[in-house]
Design a protein around this nucleic acid. Structure first.
Lengths: 109, 109
DNA sequence: TAAACTTGTAAGATTACCTTACATTGTTTT
DNA sequence: AAAACAATGTAAGGTAATCTTACAAGTTTA
């Protein structure tokens, strides 16, 4: 529900290289290892978001700490799974509240 | 003092074209008329920010209303001048308050 | 009407990006 | 230790994206 400019995929790989200090080779390799998922232009050029840039910096830090892409991927899946579960719980609680008290979407109106 | 991702110049002209619906010709022309100021890569490619994209949409709307770039530029300069004045006034008032009461930067600490 | 405004289009050149492949160095795994 | 894998560099050849300049054409302004 945030949906700012942060998640819009509009940055080409050259800019990402400059923003992160990583090589294009590295950026493409992390995609190959399924750590990052750029979109593509009709012509095939990669497009990244600012969120992607942030993620790449985190990845680079872990790599520097000796963590392998394989490990990083597992961590990411774990974190993503947890977040999904949290969202489900949150929605369930919201559902219970609505059922009990018939509340509206927000405190307004 | 905002300085989010919104003002970082990271978007190439093709993406701006897609985001705004304008032609590259138009985008470059509005630059020629000093309505927009992209940065450049070392190789010479233009780089725009999300703010630039928003501004281009506003420009496009005015153009559609029959306003000429010349007029739009005058409006922009006027608006910018006003904003500068507002900032000066705000700082002066802040200065007076600090002189009178010796307040800190924020309500924290 | 002449001049300026706005936009399209084309040409030719250059930059940016793509994929594939091979090499290297270090680290696991068998 | 040998083999396999991991991470990265680099090179080649090709395509996409962008750049500047110039001319055309319809519209608006002076």
């Amino acid at each position: 529900m945030d949906s700012s400019y942060k998640d819009k995929k509009v940055i080409t790989i050259g800019i990402v290289r400059d923003l992160t200090g990583l090589s294009e080779r590295q950026i493409r390799y992390y995609e190959e290892r399924k750590l990052i998922f750029p979109e593509r232009t009709p012509g095939g050029s990669r497009k990244y978001s600012f969120s992607d840039v942030e993620l790449l910096v985190e990845i680079a830090n872990k790599i520097e700490d000796g963590v392998q892409t394989h490990e990083i991927r597992k961590e990411m899946i774990r974190a993503q799974k947890k977040q999904t579960q949290d969202e489900i719980r949150r929605k369930m609680i919201q559902g219970q509240l609505n059922a009990q008290f018939g509340l509206r979407k927000g405190p307004s109106a």
